[in-house]
Amino acid sequence: MEIDVIIPLYKPGKELFTLLDKLDSQSVPVHEVILLNTGEKYFEQLIYGTRFLEKYQNIKVYHVSKREFDHGGTRRMGVKKSSADIFVMMTQDAMPADDNLIEQLTEPLRDQVAVSYARQLPREDCAPVECYTREFNYPAQSRIKSAEDLKTLGIKTFFCSNVCAAYRREIYEELGGFVKHTIFNEDMIYAAKAVEAGYAIAYAADARVIHSHNYTNVQQFQRNFDLGVSQAEHPEVFAAYPSESEGKRMVKDVTAYLRKNHMSGKLLHFYIQCACKYAGYLLGKNYRRLPGKWVLAFTSNKEYWKQNRKDV
């Protein structure tokens, strides 16, 4: 059984070499690594003077322009470049925690499981609040989620992350693959489609990648604006299971965590951050009512709007 890894890239740094080396040393071998690079000149600058093509002979590189990049469409293209029975979607800033990542990630892909996603651990420089939210979203216990969990988990049933996730091709093809055009959330949209079709989503806690961000308040606002847009554009997935309740639960849990660990001084910053997130999310959900200039100012993906609105 062949396993390919598909990674979209944008202005990759030298950490890409570390990621490729770690994928090359996995206990279950990777057949091919498919790199979908946005901005050919940045990639060429990175590998100039190296023995990249000689060292990484199972690598395939495809270049797309920034205007062509799309969260769903570009990943669809990557899957078409692969013929493997199982393909793993990753991001360039997700680092395997050990040599068992691929083995642990693909192990749950049996019976009715359509996709399996990895646990994300914080980086060494991760801020305390972000460290706790990693634990909130990616706990130490594995779980299989299906339609039976919708009443108790709500939108969390669909939660899945292409930061590191493995897919069964036969089910992917049956369900029509990733949505062709979306600003965000192609992974959750696919997971919702799988659950609706009777399949399950696996959270593989023993498959671990190092991945976290210390976003500024502006970045949190923009990211959640795009999140709100994706939910507004796909009411068939998100209308019945709003994410507000999950957000409220996270705020309560983080507040309790900070107080318990004598970090109450960080609460004000955390609440300001939450306000930025929620404001971005609400504006994103109502993006159709906003002037094009506002949308362009609020989003983190300006190229998406240049393709989709005439007034930007």
Rank of each mutant, 00 (worst) to 15 (best):
S230V: 06
N286L: 09
G228E: 08
L19K: 10
K66Q: 13
G176T: 09
S82H: 04
F69P: 02
A191C: 09
Q57C: 12
E40M: 08
E173G: 04
I102C: 12
D93Y: 04
P12N: 06
S264I: 06
N301Q: 13
M95V: 14
V28M: 06
G198Y: 07
L267T: 05
V295E: 10
L150E: 07
W294I: 09
N301D: 15
V33N: 00
I3S: 10
Q307A: 14
R76G: 03
Q219P: 04
G154A: 11
V64L: 15
L20F: 00
I6K: 02
S142A: 12
K193R: 15
L19N: 10
S243E: 07
R259W: 11
F238S: 06
V237T: 14
A202W: 01
T38K: 00
A197M: 11
A191V: 12
A194D: 05
R249M: 13
I34G: 00
G39Q: 01
L150W: 08
I59R: 01
G78C: 05
H213W: 06
K252H: 07
P235W: 02
I183S: 01
Y241P: 02
P29E: 09
H234K: 11
V209L: 08
W294N: 10
D24K: 00
R309C: 08
D125C: 02
Y281S: 05
D4C: 00
L109G: 05
H213D: 03
R208I: 14
E303V: 01
E303H: 06
I102H: 00
H211V: 04
F43Y: 12
L19P: 01
A239R: 12
Y10S: 06
K14F: 07
M263T: 02
A205G: 08
E107H: 02
R110V: 07
F221Y: 09
P12H: 08
S83K: 15
P242K: 05
D149V: 05
N37E: 11
L36K: 06
L121D: 10
K145Y: 09
C131S: 12
E107K: 14
F43I: 08
S65R: 09
L16C: 10
R259Y: 14
A118F: 02
V5K: 00
D311V: 08
Q57W: 05
D99Q: 12
